[in-house]
């Protein structure tokens, strides 16, 4: 698109901010997190990324074709790829292949192209896809692998492919799968146990879940890279993490038996990934910096509320969708003052 707007003459230095460039930076920033996730949860992570990306691009191609848009320009801008990768990082590594198919159908066709494609979507496509499959196929979406140190017999690449594509039941499934840290916390607290006691289980690490906390660290590193490259502004991640810490701190100090520590909240589930990569989506988020602070704080608050009282162990996806819903309203009431008025 920028090619048509480029002005000639004089030695201008054109800005290098393009959609394709931005999306490429986001993908680079995800690489450390992807490596960490693959290390802890096996080659299934990579297979899911490949599957979701292929389906996302296929639906993108189909919709561009139907809507008679420029195929080359929009297919190579990387936005569908980012949607696919972000979704794949949220699904269990051994989920069957049609999970990605259904999710990408809703993400790319319903959440993105029915609204007019890139730049017009109200809801974050990856999270729409994730929420659809989470609600529709709860069993497939909650079977998580145990992280590598706890599952010595985890399936290799060929076996993983067989499970994902062929639907074969993995050998020794009970030995390699288990509740995620957030699942254990939820069921533990619901059955009246206290947090320090629940945290003795092997799935917990130093402050988050074993393995999960390191994946979250690597996502955070990627997020800092995006901040450094000014792809995202600090407002959303700071507001998400800040609100989670500020809201869970008093609860934890008052009653550490039934409330996990703030760091536990931050380094569990999809919070770091959500704070840096999902809630920062410039299209479905807020436009002004003040609006972004509200947006991020809302994501943190709703995530905590769902984790504490809701029916799902993690609430990042729903929190992002709910704040996407509120974003146009927030934008309306956080318009920056017009200069001179």
């Amino acid at each position: 698109m920028n090619r048509q707007l480029a002005t000639g003459a004089a030695p201008h230095i054109p800005p290098s901010v393009t959609v394709a460039g931005t999306m490429r930076q986001v993908l680079y920033a995800l690489v450390p997190g992807i490596f960490a996730a693959t290390w802890y949860f096996g080659p299934g992570v990579l297979v899911q990324i490949l599957l979701a990306s292929v389906f996302a691009l296929a639906f993108e191609w189909l919709m561009l074709k139907l809507r008679k848009r420029d195929l080359r320009l929009f297919l190579t801008d990387g936005s569908a790829l980012v949607t696919g990768v972000l979704f794949a990082l949220c699904v269990p590594p051994l989920a069957p292949w049609w999970i990605s198919l259904v999710a990408m159908l809703f993400a790319v066709v319903f959440a993105k192209h029915l609204y007019g494609g890139l730049g017009h979507n109200i809801f974050n496509p990856a999270m729409v896809g994730y929420a659809v499959v989470l609600i529709s196929f709860p069993q497939e979406m909650t079977q998580w692998l145990l992280p590598r140190p706890l599952a010595p017999g985890a399936p290799g690449l060929l076996e993983t492919l067989g499970i994902i594509l062929g639907g074969a039941a993995p050998a020794g499934w009970d030995a390699i799968s288990g509740a995620t840290p957030l699942d254990s916390l939820k069921t533990g607290i619901d059955s009246g146990r206290i947090v320090p006691e629940i945290r003795l289980a092997a799935v917990f690490g130093d402050f988050g879940g074993l393995g999960w906390e390191w994946i979250a660290n690597w996502y955070a590193l990627g997020g800092l890279y995006l901040l450094y490259r000014r792809i995202i502004s600090w407002h959303v991640p700071a507001a998400v993490v800040g609100s989670v810490v500020l809201l869970s701190l008093p609860a934890w100090l008052l009653d550490p038996g039934s409330n996990p520590a703030p760091l536990q909240h931050v380094f569990s589930g999809a919070l770091v990934l959500g704070a840096f990569f999902i809630a920062t989506d410039p299209v479905s988020g807020c436009a002004s910096n003040r609006g972004r602070l509200w947006f991020g704080a809302g994501v943190g608050l709703i995530t905590l509320a769902i984790r504490r009282w809701g029916g799902y162990p993690d609430g990042v996806a729903f929190a992002v969708l709910l704040m996407n819903m509120a974003a146009p309203l927030i934008d309306r009431y956080t318009r920056p003052r017009i200069y001179g008025q």
Partner: peptide, 15 residues
């Protein structure tokens, strides 16, 4: 899609 997002509140009222 809004109804989808509101599914996240399932179970919120059984405090």
């Amino acid at each position: 899609l809004m109804a989808l997002a509101f599914m996240g509140f399932t179970g919120l009222a059984n405090l």
